[in-house]
Amino acid sequence: ELSGIPYVGSGVLASAVGQDKDYMKRVFTSFGLKVGPYVTIRPREWEADQAAATAKILDFAGEHGWPLFVKPARAGSSIGITKVDDPSGLEEAVREARRHDPKIIVEALLRGREIECGVLEFEDGPRASVPAEIPPVSSHDFYDFEAKYIDSASGLVPAPMTPEQTAEVQRLAIEAFEAASCEGLVRADFFLTEDGEFVINEINTMPGFTPISMYPRMWQESGIEYPELVDRLIQAALRRSTGLR
């Protein structure tokens, strides 16, 4: 930005929002997107009174039930996340999350399917790819680092959904892209709950981009091969000016 050099992807604000799960959820909520139940413990809040902060988490568990997921607020790749089944595991989970980030977020369990959708910026605005589904890895409690990168099963592209569900998640993915003022590309991750409702989990403003990563695969299934995808992203970057992003 300071050098005035165009670059692929979102600017400073959207990139920061996409990295901070707390502010990301606040932005989504303000734009009418549904997020799952969560509570945030900020650094000074924990350092000032650990007992009160722990009680806040326990009150949240009392309202939404166990298990909980304790996460660093600004990490990625599921690093530092612990699934906590009861109060006995809470202290260690908070310690592990804070080892990566002094700000933590605690989320309730959402039961449903994990659905992803790619967004790409075209000359006339953002468009959504066909969605994909991430199947559960039976040997893991949740989609942790090892499940993502070591034992991961191949995602289903396109996701087996009705045309109405596909259209809805594509609409929501573009809304999330716009809500966070994103540019270039985004992978939007959702839960399709047992009630048939889409709940947004997060956006990735610079998703995995190897030829076998989900974002390129979704666009390949949508008719845009890897070389064209790279070219479109570069062209989108060249169309924009730098500064105030």
Rank of each mutant, 00 (worst) to 15 (best):
S152Y: 11
S152C: 14
V106N: 08
T210K: 03
F31A: 06
V157M: 00
D141Y: 02
E123K: 13
A55W: 02
L68E: 12
A48D: 15
R171F: 01
K21H: 11
Q235A: 13
R99N: 15
E121Q: 10
T166P: 03
R240H: 02
V35G: 03
R111V: 14
G223F: 02
I41V: 15
F122A: 14
V27H: 00
G243T: 09
S152G: 15
D151I: 01
V119P: 05
V8L: 05
R171K: 12
H140G: 04
E168H: 12
A180W: 00
W66E: 10
F60N: 09
R217S: 10
P72I: 10
W46G: 10
A132H: 01
S181N: 13
L33T: 09
I104Y: 00
A173R: 08
T205H: 02
L172W: 01
N204A: 12
A159I: 09
R239D: 13
L2Q: 11
Q19W: 02
A55L: 03
R95P: 08
F145M: 07
V157P: 08
D141I: 03
E178C: 11
V199W: 04
G11A: 10
F60R: 07
S88K: 14
E92G: 07
P126T: 10
A236S: 14
Y226I: 10
